[in-house]
Write a protein that binds this DNA or RNA. Structure first.
Lengths: 242, 242
DNA sequence: TCATGGTATATGTTTAAACATACTGAAAAT
DNA sequence: ATTTTCAGTATGTTTAAACATATACCATGA
């Protein structure tokens, strides 16, 4: 048996393997899309059981660093990703858990020319036509958020599809796209006139925005999404002593 | 053309077990702290291998629904939790990844009487003394965030401790507290005079706030934390065509 | 040409068994 | 009374092996 124990004395084998794989992942070959060594090979190479390698790999899959596909192999996810799929609908879910019913004020699907910034994100030619979905959603009382999504042409999303169903289900069943990861940015901005009108607040009022880049299981961009939340719409924070 | 077959017919065993455990978890006995059945028992009860039960449980642990302790057993985490530990420092990390050096403008540690709202969250008597840590952090140019933390008396955090090190390390090594989960609320507000002065912006400017309740591995509250970010400090969102 | 079908391949599932280790609590020693 | 020791318990680790299944690719036949 091989003992390559570097730092810790008796670290579990699968954690040692995890470390090894973590450094492997950094190698440019794999970063640029080369198929990762198959688990059986890694196991043989290290002289350990396949299952031990599997638990190590599983951890990295769970972290969104590796993506696996049955019958195909394992690949390194290209970008640094921040959010897991199960974080996906956190905002909506959170609101639903608070007992608020979500209703759609407006749902608009159209084909538009990709603005330059979007073209750059998608890595496509500017003015390529992409599907744009605008949603204005809220509770019975008032609109709470404005969401705008664009889909990469690769996904073959059509404007005729039924977007009233949950988006990830539509993409899976109709477009054969499996979303798994997203990168997001959150910030606070002051409402523009346009946003203020949509969300029925005053221009300059605080707005919470979230920009998401959504990736499929094979690491390719599926969707770019911007959401604008009313500052008073999401959270009922307790303000403490100040 | 292929259509949908009944999904549950040949679902993997461990996923079926996962479902079973998910419903088990809902039972009030477990919600209120009763030790969860041990994996060997579950395995015998269902007549399957221990390993299969383990993979099912592992999934729920990963989701933060269950907490396990070697030699003790498995417990249901009491509250609905939103964030995983690895999401913990996302904001700070994100900034660091963007190449910005974070510097501390102010670090203040004091013993204060718990305000009523905090006392309620901590479930302690009002005016109980708790440790409060205030941090004003930012880049070379300007402060970016104001963070205020309070620690539950149970943690035995002392004002003499060294809080310049990463907080979770301090808690682990000095207080024997292992933080694993947090519940958070994010919203946008307009800057109060006090906040505006601290963050060097104008009153009324948008601020991103995040309120976190931090739990230890045994499901008890460790820390309550409020952070106020400059609206323009966190993200460099690409604004698209509007 | 295009659809069909088969096969090699890589991951996914499941079992069983042995040993390791952290924690608890009670008994024994100080 | 306090500490130490020890055994029981529940989870953690690791191996090995067999079978299942999704995918890709190639060969065959309409």
């Amino acid at each position: 048996m091989k003992w390559r124990i570097d730092p810790d004395l008796t670290l579990p084998l699968h954690q040692q393997v995890e470390k090894i794989i973590r450094t492997l992942v950094e190698k440019p070959e794999y970063q640029s899309g080369l198929m990762f060594p198959k688990e059986v090979d890694i196991a043989n190479e290290l002289g350990i059981a396949r299952n031990t390698v599997r638990t190590a790999i599983a951890k990295l899959v769970q972290e969104g660093i590796l993506v696996r596909k049955k019958g195909v192999g394992t690949m390194v996810v290209r970008k640094k990703l921040l959010t897991r799929l199960d974080h996906w609908f956190s905002f909506t879910k959170e609101m639903e858990e608070k007992g608020r019913k979500i209703i759609n004020y407006r749902l608009e699907v159209k084909l538009v020319k990709a603005p330059p910034e979007l073209a750059e994100i998608f890595n496509i030619k500017p003015d390529t036509r992409v599907v744009e979905i605008t949603r204005l959603r809220g509770d019975e009382e008032k609109p709470l958020l404005l969401s705008i999504s664009w889909f990469h042409p690769r996904t073959k999303v059509q404007i005729e599809q039924d977007f009233t169903r949950p988006l990830y289900k539509v993409l899976e069943e109709e477009n054969n796209v499996y979303v798994t990861l997203s990168r997001e940015d959150i910030s606070a901005i002051a409402a523009t006139n346009d946003l203020a009108e949509n969300l029925q607040i005053k221009p300059g009022d605080p707005i919470l925005t979230r920009n998401r880049t959504v990736y499929s299981s094979d690491g390719q961009i599926v969707e770019y999404n911007q959401v604008f939340y009313r500052g008073d719409g999401i959270s009922y924070s307790v303000e403490i002593g100040r």
